[in-house]
């Protein structure tokens, strides 16, 4: 057991899997010698050599396509797209090729690969370093979509993703790489070392895909969230004195519906929280499912707390980000109805 931040935990997952499986290869922009702009792949080239951890040209389409060819050969590509905002040149390869290959080849050419990508805002990255495009991938049959929120889960989920037979889009909430963020941007960042989820077991362990985690048990309300917003939501329910059950979904596809339904049936109220823009966001899917499955248990309309339907605005970051004020208002509304 070691204390790690999320970057160290992800790095450790790479090392554990690259040691265990010679078919795991890592590449991406700046991911080789330097170890990535967020240092997640640091030291891999040194330990595993240049042909298993290397720099790629600035060509997300080429990176994903090369991974398709490698997976067809029998390797397990573990690739980095430097920012989720840059993933779009690779989108055709992901949607038309990676996601559909098992299906269109009747199982002959599955595409086991992990596409890691830092996502989300709160870092003053402007519109090209802050986006949360997860719903563009949850909509695509054939992909699994994973979002960790702690160092412990980041390592375990990444190991599970690498071992998974299907392609996984692995969104890393970069705002919480170094420490959990409670949404109060004017307060100092708490490092992960002060958080129990920074205790990361040594060696191999997997956090299974498709299983949510109840982060806080409660009776009054269910909060469904993931990524950075797990911590922002937790802080908000504590600050507002709401006895909420906070669920970290961890995997968006396949979704742990059982945990969601059990909780909403218990609490009778539900709030969905994500950073991504509102319209057609993954929250819309969650609200629809809760409405379909738990309608007669609901005591109030399900509310959403989200980013606004604008591009991510640089200097207006904290007016855009779904922080404590937006959460407070939504909590009051769901609890008041």
């Amino acid at each position: 057991m070691a204390t790690m931040n999320m970057i160290q935990a992800l790095n450790d997952a790479h090392k554990v899997m690259m040691r265990a499986d010679g078919d795991v290869v890592v590449f991406g922009e700046d991911a080789g010698y330097f170890g990535g702009v967020f240092r997640v792949t640091e030291g891999l080239q040194r330990e595993f050599g240049k042909t298993r951890a290397f720099d790629a040209p600035i060509s997300e389409g080429g990176i994903v396509a090369a991974a398709v060819g490698m997976a067809a050969y029998g390797l397990k590509p573990l690739i980095e797209i430097q920012f989720a905002d840059y993933i779009y040149p690779g989108y055709d390869q992901i949607v038309s090729e990676v996601a559909k290959m098992r299906y269109r080849t009747a199982g002959e050419w599955p595409m086991p690969m992990v596409i890691r990508t830092p996502y989300g805002g709160g870092i003053f990255g402007g519109q090209t370093h802050s986006q949360s495009p997860e719903s563009l991938f949850t909509h695509i049959a054939g992909l699994k979509v994973v979002v960790p929120s702690t160092p412990h889960d980041a390592k375990g989920l990444l190991i599970a993703a690498i071992e998974d037979p299907d392609p996984v889009i692995f969104f890393e909430p970069k705002r919480i790489y170094n420490g959990p963020f409670d949404g109060h941007h004017d307060r100092p960042v708490t490092p992960w070392a002060k958080h129990s989820a920074s205790e990361v077991p040594d060696g191999h362990y997997a956090v299974p895909l498709g299983k949510a985690r109840v982060v806080r048990e409660g009776e009054a309300l269910t909060v469904l969230t993931y990524g950075t917003m797990v911590h922002v939501s937790l802080a908000a329910v504590e600050e507002n004195g709401v006895d909420a059950e906070v669920i970290d979904l961890r995997t968006l596809v396949p979704l742990d519906l059982e945990t969601i339904v059990a909780s909403v049936e218990k609490t009778g109220r539900c709030l969905v929280v994500h950073e991504a823009p509102r319209t057609s966001g993954f929250g819309a899917e969650l609200v629809a499912l809760v409405q379909e499955r738990c309608f007669y248990h609901l005591e109030a309309p399900v509310e959403r707390v989200t980013g606004w339907d604008t591009p991510y605005p640089h200097s207006y970051e904290w007016a855009y980000f779904p922080g404590p004020k937006r959460l407070k208002k939504a909590l009051e509304k769901v609890m008041g109805d």
Partner: peptide, 8 residues
């Protein structure tokens, strides 16, 4: 580019 990836 997939062909290139396979050959890589």
């Amino acid at each position: 580019p997939q062909a290139v990836g396979w050959a890589m």
